[in-house]
Design a protein around this nucleic acid. Structure first.
Length: 288
DNA sequence: CCCATTTGACCATA
DNA sequence: TATGGTCAAATGGG
């Protein structure tokens, strides 16, 4: 798989519209989109193997990821709503200045780039299951993006590992002290001669019990049907499962009206960022 | 000054 | 005893 990893702008910056006029700060929204990128990557790697065999441990992880993903997308929508409410008047003024034909052309071009943007997120952020149950309750994955997994971690150690060029980093949940959350993880870069460059092995130990990841939540719906352009060829198409965040149990969903909450949020996100100027830095994340 | 990271020391286990 | 996981003091950035 060819990676097209590019990086988001690190500093808060303003951007101009196609007329070089209005300016706004998209950095908070960009930060959330980065999280979405990570979560979608994890989700894809977890759901696909789950079609073959779903262990209880992974079911709990899936439910955690869904909950976090919902939070992130909600934040993105809220942030963009706040920012763009201030720009609506200006946008309306600009649209009045354009004729209808020009508006349609611009909108079509933006929607095309938005679709490509998220398809690229799916394709370039794949996580692959590597191994599991090294020390009982643990799961490890390979990923090019080891740090954005929806949880907050604090590094507490780093060690040289025998027969490995790269050090292993040790992280524990940020809320270990205040909430006694014992979740930990280790991150170690893979050897370049044995795998793809820039890949990391991330091993998770224990479960998050910190407040950000617990609390009542409805069963999450995992839709394993995914656009062909964004999925590998061995995907299972068309089935849906419900995973209880509390029990980890799952079953095939028969209600055709049930839909992915995060998909709805994502659609909202697409609508909201449709007004992002074509020359915004956001679109420079990936090659189109 | 606070907090996260770094890093050497310590400890557990095979 | 070698290896790897954790602790905690030192360090540095905001």
């Amino acid at each position: 798989m060819k990676l097209h990893t590019r990086y988001l702008p690190q500093s808060s910056s303003t951007c101009a519209d196609e007329f070089g006029r209005f300016a706004c700060d998209h950095q908070p929204a960009i930060n959330e989109i980065v999280k979405v990128q990570s979560l979608v990557a994890q989700l894809r790697a977890i759901v696909l193997p789950a079609c073959e065999m779903m262990a209880d441990l992974r079911s709990e992880l899936v439910s955690e990821l869904f909950g976090t993903l919902q939070d992130c997308t909600s934040k993105v929508i809220s942030e963009l709503q706040t920012q763009y409410s201030a720009h609506l008047i200006d946008v309306d003024r600009r649209r009045l200045a354009m004729n209808i034909s020009d508006c349609k052309k611009v909108c079509a071009k933006k929607k095309s780039r938005i679709n490509s943007f998220f398809i690229n997120l799916m394709n370039t952020s794949s996580w692959e299951k590597c191994s599991s149950s090294r020390y009982g309750d643990s799961t490890s994955y390979m990923t090019p993006i080891p740090h954005y997994d929806g949880h907050q971690w604090r590094k507490y150690g780093q060690k040289n590992i025998k027969n490995s060029k790269h050090q292993r980093s040790y992280y524990r949940c940020t809320y270990k002290q205040e909430q006694n959350c014992m979740a930990t993880k280790t991150v170690q870069q893979q050897e370049h001669n044995t795998t793809e460059p820039g890949m990391y092995t991330v091993a998770y130990y224990g479960h998050h019990i910190c407040k950000a990841n617990t609390g009542p939540a409805p069963p999450h719906v995992i839709e394993t049907s995914t656009p062909q352009s964004a999925m590998s060829s061995d995907s299972i198409i068309g089935s849906q499962e419900i995973v209880s965040p509390h029990t980890g149990s799952h079953k095939i969903l028969e209600n055709e009206h049930a839909t992915l909450q995060w998909t709805e949020d994502m659609q909202g996100l697409l609508e909201k960022i449709a007004d992002v100027p074509l020359d915004s830095d956001i679109w420079e994340m990936y090659q189109f």
